[in-house]
Computed example of a mutant assay.
Amino acid sequence: MSLTVAICIATHNRRDDLENTLSVLDKLDPQPTEVLITADGCVDGTVEWVRTHYPQHRLVVNDQARGSTGSRDTMFRMATSDIVLILDDDSHPVDMDFLAHLPRLFAAYPRAAVFSFPQRTDEFPESLQKADFGPSYFAGTYVNCASAVRRSAFLDLGGYPAEFRIAYDEPDFALRCTAAGWQVRHETSLTIRHHYSGVMRNGLRMHQIHARNELWSVFMRCPMPQLFAVALFRLVRQFGFAWKWNRSWVVREPQWWVAAARGLPQCLRQRQPLPWARYQAWMQLVRRPIASEAEWNATFAIHPFEVATSETRPFISEP
Rank of each mutant, 00 (worst) to 15 (best):
F124C: 11
F124R: 15
K130M: 15
A131S: 15
A131V: 14
F133D: 11
G134E: 10
S136K: 02
Y137N: 04
F138D: 03
F138E: 04
Y142N: 03
Y142A: 08
Y142C: 06
N144T: 14
A146R: 03
S147E: 02
S147W: 01
R150P: 01
R151T: 10
S152I: 12
F154W: 05
L155T: 11
D156F: 06
G158K: 02
P161L: 08
A162M: 08
A162L: 11
A162F: 05
A162W: 04
R165P: 00
R165M: 12
I166N: 01
I166R: 06
A167D: 08
A167W: 03
D169Q: 13
P171C: 11
D172K: 03
D172A: 13
A174K: 00
A174C: 09
L175T: 01
L175Q: 03
C177R: 05
T178H: 05
A179Q: 07
G181H: 01
W182N: 02
W182M: 02
Q183C: 09
V184Y: 02
R185C: 02
H186C: 08
H186V: 06
E187C: 09
T188I: 14
L190A: 05
L190N: 02
T191K: 09
R193T: 06
R193N: 10
H194Q: 09
H194I: 03
H195Q: 10
H195R: 13
Y196R: 10
Y196C: 08
S197Y: 08
S197V: 07
G198H: 14
V199D: 12
M200D: 07
M200R: 13
R201Q: 06
M206I: 11
H207K: 13
Q208K: 10
Q208M: 13
H210G: 11
A211W: 00
A211M: 07
A211G: 11
E214N: 14
L215M: 14
S217N: 04
V218I: 15
F219T: 03
M220H: 01
R221W: 06
C222H: 01
P223E: 09
P225I: 10
Q226W: 12
Q226H: 11
A229R: 14
